[in-house]
């Protein structure tokens, strides 16, 4: 975005959003029309709903119409309802989260609504989520809870969640076979991130270059440590030597990454916390297995993966159960 006329969008700080939780989204709102037979009929015709309770003398409204009664419609509810909810949505609009989609609706019906019932409602902002990355784009989930009353009696509750999001650049469904996160066929494949090599860990990466996984050993107390650190966590000594890992280990824990996709990574893939035979643990990728076949305790074996011309990484190949140490 080098266009100088495009304002730089700044995401709202979490505390700017949290303050909205508990604030009213509507106070003493009034349904525009009393519960009425024509609206019930229009609804039932649209839904194809032929429940006999919704027609004729003594008819009740379909309970799922609860929200329809309190919708603002084309004219809206007007400035008297311009409360914290509108300010919150405006704040998210300004931050670039301009699109909205409803994601959840949870309604309880305490008693049937009948033609003639005049409804009032009060709503509160329950939660504003931290920034979430979704298939539609990044955004915040906003949850409200509305209480609907007739002559002061609670007749229903309505919890509603929307996603207020910045539409992704290409939200259209991806062509078949194109997995999320993969580079486009016409563009160069993005590179995996490079390790940051400094004087504290240079020895480790020199070992990787030589095809060895090196563990640090304290020269004073012989404690093994990994990842590499400048001093011993047990006795504090800055002196160390190295031990070459045998390469045997087991899955101590793991996650399967599905989402969000990152450039140069093809989900799903497994990130394992591997306990080496020497007793220290290392985080790396698990290869040679379907992600859903990995289990805690799965035996693994060290391999070096040449990711690209400039990057070699220690990874772990899953072995059949019963193999390995």
């Amino acid at each position: 975005m080098s266009d100088p006329t495009t304002p730089r969008l700044r995401p709202p700080r979490p505390e700017d959003l949290k303050v909205f939780e508990g604030l009213p989204a509507a106070v003493s709102g009034r349904a525009k029309d009393p519960v009425n037979a024509p609206m019930i009929r229009h609804w039932c015709e649209a839904m194809g709903d032929r429940h006999p309770a919704y027609t004729g003398p003594g008819a009740v409204a379909p309970p799922t119409m609860l929200q329809a009664w309190i919708m603002g419609g084309l004219s809206g509810h007007g400035p008297r309802d311009a409360h914290a909810y509108d300010r919150l949505l405006a704040l998210l609009d300004r931050a670039g989260y301009t699109a909205v989609v409803a994601t959840d609706c949870e309604q309880e019906y305490l008693r049937p609504l009948r033609p003639g019932d005049e409804l009032t409602f009060d709503a509160v902002i329950e939660t504003v989520s931290p920034l979430k990355r979704t298939r539609l784009g990044a955004g915040h989930f906003v949850t409200t809870r509305t209480e609907i009353r007739t002559a002061g009696d609670l007749v229903g509750t309505h919890r509603f969640r929307i996603l207020k999001y910045a539409p992704a650049a290409h939200p259209a469904p991806r062509p078949e076979g194109a997995a999320a996160g993969r580079s486009s066929p016409e563009g160069p494949r993005p590179e995996r991130p490079r390790p940051v090599i400094n004087r504290d860990n240079a020895g480790f990466w020199a070992g990787v270059a030589a095809g060895e996984l090196l563990i640090q050993r304290c020269a004073a107390c012989a404690e093994l440590r990994f990842p590499w650190l400048p001093g011993c966590g047990r006795c504090g000594s800055p002196d160390w030597t190295t031990v070459r890992a045998s390469g045997a280990g087991r899955v101590f824990s793991y996650v399967i990454m599905h989402h969000p996709p990152f450039p140069a990574f093809d989900p799903p893939y497994v990130v394992g916390l591997i306990e080496l035979a020497e007793g220290v643990r290392i985080i790396s990728n698990l290869i040679g297995t379907e992600p859903d076949r990995v289990r805690i305790g799965t035996p693994v074996e060290l391999e070096f993966l040449q990711v690209d011309a400039g990057l070699r990484l220690p990874v772990f190949r899953a072995l059949p159960d019963g193999a390995g140490a």
Partner: peptide
């Protein structure tokens, strides 16, 4: 929401009353 409610009352019949719909 309306279709889910209709699906349930279509099945359970004329005496059925929805108490809660959560989708």
């Amino acid at each position: 929401n309306g279709l889910v409610g209709r699906y349930i009352t279509d099945h359970f019949g004329a005496e059925a009353t929805l108490l809660k719909v959560s989708i």
